[in-house]
């Protein structure tokens, strides 16, 4: 006797069966709390992305926190130099699991055009990165796109827009 056959006679169609993991991931991906680590002009684009014209809160990442202990999404926006690298690492270590990192812009992703003695050549030298956003600076739409990609990475077997086809998201 399957679960369906047990559940359906008692509760009708008022019950949805799922897995705890899926529910948790569903909750996590639609309630990301970003922490902006803004050091340069990309942070200005982030201000555009969170304010009304683009509105990051439409994707669930509304509550921008300025403490690593209250957030689970670290958004690194701007040039990180070598002296700042240990500070960034410390901030990352202070965040609670599960946590994700988005490198916004060319500087955070690769050092950008700062090929010199003082600038870290990408934050992945010190912390793991989930999503890289290109651009100098990127458009707010790209930041939104990064968020959607991250949501798909958090819950890769999600339903799409109420349709019942599960899919495996290709991160390429």
């Amino acid at each position: 006797m399957s679960k369906q056959e047990i559940v359906t006679p008692s509760f009708g169609d008022t019950v949805v069966t799922t897995r705890i993991k899926s529910v948790l991931n569903w909750a996590r991906k639609y309630s990301l709390w970003p922490m902006p680590f803004g050091t340069a002009c990309c942070a200005i684009e982030f201000m555009g992305a969170v304010s009304s014209a683009f509105d990051l809160s439409r994707f669930g990442a509304e509550v921008v926190r300025f403490s690593p202990r209250q957030s689970d999404l670290l958004m690194v926006m701007g040039t990180i130099n070598y002296k700042q690298a240990p500070i960034l690492k410390k901030i990352y270590e202070q965040m609670c699991e599960p946590k994700w990192v988005v490198a916004v812009g060319a500087c955070a992703s690769s050092g950008g055009f700062y090929n010199n003695y003082s600038v870290l050549q990408g934050i992945d030298e010190v912390i793991p990165v989930d999503i890289y956003v290109p651009g100098c600076p990127p458009r707010p739409e790209q930041i939104l796109d990064a968020l959607v990609k991250l949501q798909k990475k958090i819950d890769p077997t999600a339903f799409v827009d109420g349709l019942n086809n599960t899919y495996q998201y290709d991160l390429k």
């Binding site: 690298a85 690492k89 410390k90 090929n115 010199n116 003695y117």
Partner: peptide
């Protein structure tokens, strides 16, 4: 040298 990198400092 322009490409010379240094060890990442400790906090």
């Amino acid at each position: 040298p322009i490409n010379q990198r240094q060890p990442i400092p400790v906090l």
